[in-house]
Amino acid sequence: MSKKILELHELKREFHMGTEIVRALKGVTFDVFAGEFVTIMGSSGSGKTTLLNTLGCLDKPTSGSYLLDGVNVGQQSRNELALLRNRKIGFVFQAYNLLARTTALENVELPLLYNPDIKHHDRREKAIKALEAVKLGDRLDHLPNQLSGGQQQRVAIARALVNEPVMILADEATGNLDTRTSYEIMALMQELNQTQGKTIVFVTHEPDIAAFSSRTIMLKDGRVVKDAKNENVRNAKEALAALPVAEDY
């Protein structure tokens, strides 16, 4: 059995809205092992976003435990959480969240700037390597507004990869993209997962996208209602090839 990256046990998260208490997560338990490609699915209000924030160390659970790579997140201070986010997690957002008027290279370098262990000359090298890994080696000096949506998302993925995190955490990462580009992104994710062994946790509400992962966790009303291995994982590259080519006219 490979190493446990995520260990969630009876994870609860409550919010106080005035006098009411909103229970967003009502005891979530699951583990994710290194090298897994997990999608977390659920409709609006299922606690998906709260779970994502917790997994991403942006939020702390009210009760229960969450261990990320062996570190108990619930007991960490604000600054320690920032350190965890920097070293162990690579975020990919729906809206890409690239800095405007900043080149692809500089955007990818950003997480390294907050990592004092990385020397100046290594930084550039690592960023270039990450961009090459997402096949944007020829777009280093392009600004976000000179890139297509898919390319921007690939820059964001490069940014997530650059600090060599234990887990890539994607939040509706294909939500703003058309089917073809979504499949391209998923193909990239699959490749990172299969060839480089990256652990990926992918939050989505599209079953179509979930089909590319090796395991799907379904949330409903703050509880896990289904957690199953995917028997027949779709290959994103094949799916891409199967798409009708001449859609444009």
Partner: peptide
């Protein structure tokens, strides 16, 4: 604000 959020999500501390 959004940029600040992003910076925090990729590991910037409050002091940074």
């Amino acid at each position: 604000t959004k940029e600040i959020g992003l910076r925090m999500s990729i590991g910037a501390r409050g002091i940074d």
